[in-house]
Nucleic acid binder design. Structure first.
Lengths: 188, 188
DNA sequence: TAGTTTAACTAACAATCGTTAGTTTTGTAA
DNA sequence: TTACAAAACTAACGATTGTTAGTTAAACTA
C-alpha cells in the first residue's frame, strides 16, 4: 500500500490542521513539514481547498456508508445502536486527524463540497435518530427525551478523536465494550 | 447593566469566532460587524489576542470556580456529580459563544494566558476525576473504567454549547433533569 | 543513450493580515 | 460657549497569505 505524493500531503496537512485548525496553517507550513517549498505542493494538488475537501469528504463518506448500512439492518434497535458505536470507534481510531478536520474545519469547505458534506451529515444524524425512535417504540429505550439521548451519544462519539493518545493501554475492543456499557446502561 | 465598548467588541467577536474560528476572522470583519473601521477597535482593546484571552479566560474562571466549589462540598459523590452537570448547563447557556471559543480556539492563546488556561483546564478535569473515583470507592458508581466514564461525561458537557439553538422549546430545568438521567442512569 | 515525465526549484504577484500614527468628529461637563 | 475626553476616521507600514510562471534537476522509458 504505497501512497502517492498527494496522499502524503493530505496526511501531513491533517496533522497540522488538527493542532492549529485549517485557517491557521499556511501552505508554507505544510511544505516545510515535507521538506519542500510551498510552490512544489502545486505539482500534486490544485490548492489548499482540495486538501481540506479530500480529507473531510473521504471520512464523511466512510461514516455515511457505515451508518446507512447498519441502520437498514433488521436486527433490534439496541443491537444496531451498539454496532453504530463500535463502528464509530473503528473509523475514529483509523483516521483521527481527518476526523479532527471534519469536526472543526468543515465550515471552511467551499461550494458543492460544503453542500455535500452537510447533506451527508444530516443523513447520518437522521439515521441515529430513527434507530433511537425505533428503540423507544419497541420499549428497548427509555421514552423520555429522544433528542437528549441523541445529543449525548453523538457528542461522545464526535469527540472520540481527542482520545486517541490518551486512551493509552486500553485496547480498542475493551473500549468498545466499556463505551457501549456507559452510553447505554449508564454509570450507576 | 450597560456594557462598555470593549465588552461589545468581545461579544461581537465571539459570535464571529464561533462561526468561523479565531484565525479565519479578521479585525476588519469584527469592525464591519460593528459599523466602524478596524483601526477604531484599537481605541478600546490592545489587539486581537486580548479579545480572545478576555473571552476565554473569563468563562474558564467561571468553570474552574464552580467545579472547585462543588468538588469540595461534602455531599455524596453522585450528588456532586449531578450538581456539576447542572452548573455546566447554566454556564453554557449563559455564554455559548465564549464557550465555543474556549473549546475551539484555546490553542491560539499566547504566553501566560495559554499557561493559565491549561492549568485551569487540568484542574477542572481533575475535579471531575476525583469525584468519579470517590463514587466508585463508595460503590455509587460502577467500577469498570473510570476514564471512559469521565470521557463520556466531559464530551457531552463540552459540546453543550452547540445545542443552544437546537434545544428549542426544551426548558433549561427539564434539560438538566433529562441530561442527568441519561448520563447517570443510561438510556435503557 | 535520447526523450519524456515527474517533481523539485526560484521569483514574484496581488490580496489581505494585524497594527500604528496622526487627525477629525462627537459627546459631555464647566 | 468653551474645554476636554472619548471614539471615530484616513492612510499607511511591513509581514504573510495562496497561488502562478518559468526553469532545472532527477528518474523512468524507449
Amino acid at each position: 500500500m504505497k501512497q502517492t505524493r498527494k496522499e502524503e500531503i493530505v496526511i501531513v496537512a491533517a496533522k497540522l490542521f488538527k493542532e492549529r485548525g485549517y485557517s491557521a496553517v499556511s501552505m508554507r507550513d505544510i511544505a516545510q513539514q515535507m521538506d519542500i517549498k510551498a510552490a512544489s505542493l502545486y505539482n500534486h494538488i490544485k490548492g489548499k481547498q482540495e486538501i481540506l475537501s479530500t480529507l473531510i469528504l473521504h471520512v464523511a463518506r466512510a461514516f455515511t456508508n457505515s451508518t446507512q448500512q447498519i441502520t437498514s439492518e433488521n436486527s433490534s434497535p439496541l443491537t444496531r445502536l451498539k454496532k453504530l458505536i463500535a463502528v464509530h470507534i473503528d473509523i475514529t481510531f483509523h483516521n483521527p486527524d481527518a476526523i479532527a478536520a471534519l469536526n472543526n474545519d468543515w465550515m471552511h469547505l467551499d461550494g458543492q463540497d460544503l453542500l455535500d458534506f452537510i447533506a451527508m451529515r444530516d443523513q447520518y444524524e437522521e439515521n441515529f435518530r430513527s434507530i433511537i425512535k425505533q428503540g423507544i417504540q419497541k420499549q428497548q429505550i427509555r421514552a423520555k427525551e429522544p433528542e437528549v439521548i441523541l445529543f449525548s451519544i453523538l457528542s461522545t462519539l464526535r469527540t472520540l478523536y481527542l482520545w486517541n493518545e490518551k486512551r493509552g493501554k486500553l485496547e480498542v475492543d475493551v473500549l468498545k465494550q466499556e463505551l457501549v456499557a456507559v452510553l447505554i446502561s449508564g454509570i450507576v
